[in-house]
Design a protein around this nucleic acid. Sequence first.
DNA 1: ATTATCTTGATTGATTTAGTGAAGAAGTGT
DNA 2: ACACTTCTTCACTAAATCAATCAAGATAAT
Lengths: 150, 150
Amino acid sequence: MRVTQRCQYALRAIFELARRNGRGPIKIADIAEVQAIPQRFLEVILSQLKHGGFVDSQRGTDGGYFLKRDPADLTVGEVMRFMQGFIGPVSCVLNESEDNKCVLYGDCAFIDMWKEVQRAMTEIYDNTTFKNLVERDQQRKSEYLPCYSI
Amino acid sequence: MRVTQRCQYALRAIFELARRNGRGPIKIADIAEVQAIPQRFLEVILSQLKHGGFVDSQRGTDGGYFLKRDPADLTVGEVMRFMQGFIGPVSCVLNESEDNKCVLYGDCAFIDMWKEVQRAMTEIYDNTTFKNLVERDQQRKSEYLPCYSI
DNA sequence: ATTATCTTGATTGATTTAGTGAAGAAGTGT
DNA sequence: ACACTTCTTCACTAAATCAATCAAGATAAT
């Protein structure tokens, strides 16, 4: 596994907020249950996401978390970079990043391949918005439950 | 960083053997120096690669390691799977893998994205052979040093 | 025999990861 | 004012992973 559990939890939490966007604050306990995330861990993660400007919160009765960003403008890539740092197979794809310098002084047979992989990954992550995810989820659910109202 | 140092060392070692394929056994110390790998660590890794059937070795004077596989038929993906297990962003992309089951019972909004990323990654890794890498490396070197003999 | 080289299993230290504990601050309703 | 709910924060731990080394041994060529 490469995408950490913590990051997956963050993505799922934001997805849940995006899915219910505009319906007022959602409680941590609610998100934790629906998305199968340990509640105490989720508290830490949501606090982190709040500092990152992704979500905001309301305390007290009927409090909870809600999205601060437009789901149509928030990409998976942005959240992943915030949670785990850069996106890529190896750290040396970062051009001249001080301490991540290649020990082979640029004479590396693999660098083109690594960059190709990084490009492929970021292409997908940066073009997947939470609005996309919500729409796909709704469509998938309507396909699997065509006779929902019966 | 996602591809472990250990795996990168393994790839570089095999690349070095592929580059000098057919020229007899190469010493661990030699590979370690050229590819900037800690020698003691490389010993362990090469031993592992031998058990995996990727390389073979010869003891004694003028001994060393050499490729057991045809570089044109050996892909980066194959070595990566041997060194790190499966290739992919999250473990749940493995369909029904006993203990890696999705906690959301398949109701996951991200699974399609993860699979797309996995497909993109494996497409690159499984289509990059060590012969490719050696050829690209030679070409790159001839471009950067056009007046090598002067 | 001697030397060079690979072989193997155990071990270490650092880092990352996942998750928990516990006390507190801030809203809301009565 | 008070109780209740919910978020907030910092510290902490347990486990896993990772990178690398130690130490002793086995094997081949000369």
